[in-house]
Write a protein that binds this DNA or RNA. Structure first.
Lengths: 145, 145
DNA sequence: TATTGTTATACTCTATAACTATA
DNA sequence: TATAGTTATAGAGTATAACAATA
């Protein structure tokens, strides 16, 4: 991963560009930290979502995490095969997702990695600016207009 | 693209997560704006880099933009076939990249899209926070430790 | 009629290894 | 010996269209 802006990079004045580079860099670091748990960032997001919204459906989870229904199928299947998520028939078509005991234990470990990574990220920002990091990022996460 | 944080999203307190969602959202918007020019964000980054560092080599450009040498080959080839970039033998193995007249004209149009997108992004941030957006993002774009 | 889960498939981006020809 | 460009290939991640069963 490109872990530093390069001196000759003429794009470092563009928020969109730096936003992307920072995101890729942070993501790669997080995934490195999660590798020993054989998890990827998206897995942890899913586990966190299911924990906070027990009995959520697959489609609804996909809507929140912005993962297409069709792509949720192999994604959830992998977590289920691994025994961290379980499915329960809700009605004829929907299935409620829940964490297994094993899933809860794994998530607990993953959360320690995530928290450490968050601290790392924040630690790179000058102390004065730390309180505005999340507000700035949330403001950028918008669409139209 | 997920153009808004969802109410039930328990991850909106994580900088890393919001950083990624904001980045994907901004990128999708930029690419929409560039679509009429048949350009992708990476194409514009490349054109901007070549403009600011004329006679840069393919490898060096890849290093700055964090694109692997192997992936630069079809990438640059496409821009060359399109007549926006030209190659010039430097020595036996290196080739200098440069913008063609057509490339400069196309970049000019692309820059208007990029500038508008930048304004859009900044416009979403409360006025008070705008001056710190770039400093915050640059601070996050770091690695080790 | 709209929605859930599903299959199949394609496309983009990224990653690795190996080769060549130069420096 | 290290580097530039190249080829081939594999793997993520993401996108669309279509279908069955259900609400």
């Amino acid at each position: 991963m490109g872990g530093l802006p390069h001196m000759k990079d003429p794009l470092v004045n563009l928020c969109g560009y730096v936003l992307r580079r920072a995101s890729l860099c942070a993501l790669a670091e997080l995934n490195e930290g999660l590798a020993p748990l054989k998890l990827r960032h998206a897995d942890v997001a899913m586990l966190m979502l299911v924990q906070s919204s027990p009995r959520i459906t697959q489609s609804e989870a996909g809507r929140i995490l912005d993962i297409k229904r069709a792509n949720m199928v192999p994604f959830v299947a992998r977590l289920e095969e691994r025994g961290v998520i379980e499915r329960q028939q809700l009605d004829g078509r929907s299935q409620a997702l829940g964490l297994t005991r094993r899933g809860r234990m794994l998530l607990e470990r993953a959360l320690r990695v995530v928290d450490a990574h968050e601290a790392l990220l924040l630690g790179r920002v000058p102390e004065k600016l730390r309180p505005v990091v999340l507000p700035v990022l949330l403001a950028l996460w918008r669409r139209r207009p």
